[in-house]
Amino acid sequence: MWPQRELLDRLAIELPIVQAPMAGANDATLAIAASRGGALGSIPCAMLAPERIEREVTRFREHATGPLNLNFFCHLPSPPDPNAEAAWRERLAPFYREAGLDPEDAAPAAQRTPFDDVQCVLVERLRPEVVSFHFGLPDAPLLARVKATGATVMASATTVAEGRWLATNGADIIISQGLEAGGHRGAFLEDTRADTVADAMARQPGTFALVPQLVDAIDRPVIAAGGIGDARGVAAAFALGACGVQLGTYYLATPESLISDIHRAALAEARDDNSVVTRLFSGRPARSLVNRVIRALGPLSPAAPPFPTAGGALAPLKQAAEAQGRGDFSSLWAGQAAALAPHGDAETLTRRLGDETLARLQALASR
């Protein structure tokens, strides 16, 4: 009944839907619910210790029977830059003084570990059916070990050039991440340094411009991601040649996600025009709902130090503001279609989206 079955048959899933792995926003609970609904469940691993990854995979296997996607980052860590971090604290000092805090109390940033031998050993032992990567691919020897487990490898591309590179270097499926997508941009060929990031982001295509060009450019299945919030978007992705969709913001408001009540409240007020690509929260471009610090400093301020260190100096401010019920310094990740995100549990929403998309596709075919 689906116009394109490659993703369904290759991954042995019921619906051509991938629940996006969202570091800090989901664990096995959401992956289990999405899987039970017929989608590919995903667990983000970049911020998890090996023991935690193992526990989450065990929990998924105990409560779901579908395939599992483990997601990892492939960024090149930036060397510590004490001068940049000191300048960042100085830039934030007025906010610290207002909150009665000492800028020298900034906490270490949350670690995001790039894929390495330790994580590869985990993959070899846990044998997830799918392994996906953000910010490119790991070095060839590590990737070869992943593929030797039999896992399907997926990776995100934000441009046609990145999609071609991923296809040439071993990715089995390409995730076409348009500029509308929430959370971190998967860009890895684009220059996203502080002094060039605005130009790089200004040139990146949206989902429905990128998908058909990627489909034409590579001999790999393409998954559409970004700005898809209901059956209309899924049907449109198929019309442009995608074999499925990846949804993140769609699941953020579900009870299975890990986001805060403040983040949930912000999502409830989301509009088409109140999210921006910003580097303030990590040092790397990511789409968030606009809040006080973004308005005050500008979303792509060069003052923020390189990924992933920017968040450390914001942590005390975030904690103080959230204690008062405000998200002034919080990373409120969301895509441009956040206002379309429905309410309900992830399993029900997944199955409903599949049913509604099929009905829409059938109606279009009968015209």
Rank of each mutant, 00 (worst) to 15 (best):
A346I: 11
L70I: 07
N274Y: 02
L68C: 04
E14Q: 11
S301K: 05
A236I: 00
A231C: 10
C120V: 00
A25S: 12
E54W: 01
E90N: 13
R326K: 13
P128A: 08
T113L: 14
A253F: 04
A181M: 10
M154I: 08
R360V: 12
A268F: 05
P103M: 13
D117H: 06
T249V: 10
P138M: 10
D105V: 01
R91H: 04
N69T: 09
A49F: 00
S301A: 15
S366C: 05
Q319E: 15
P80Y: 07
G186V: 13
R5Q: 15
I228S: 05
R145T: 07
S42K: 01
G248D: 14
F135P: 02
T65R: 15
H134A: 02
F115A: 10
P114H: 08
T278P: 11
F73P: 05
A140T: 01
T309M: 00
A171T: 02
L332Q: 09
G136R: 10
D139R: 05
L189G: 13
G150V: 02
R351T: 12
A148S: 14
P77V: 14
L267A: 14
A33V: 05
G182H: 05
A321G: 11
A194N: 13
N274W: 07
D81R: 12
L314T: 07
A109Q: 12
A46S: 15
L349K: 00
A237I: 07
R367A: 15
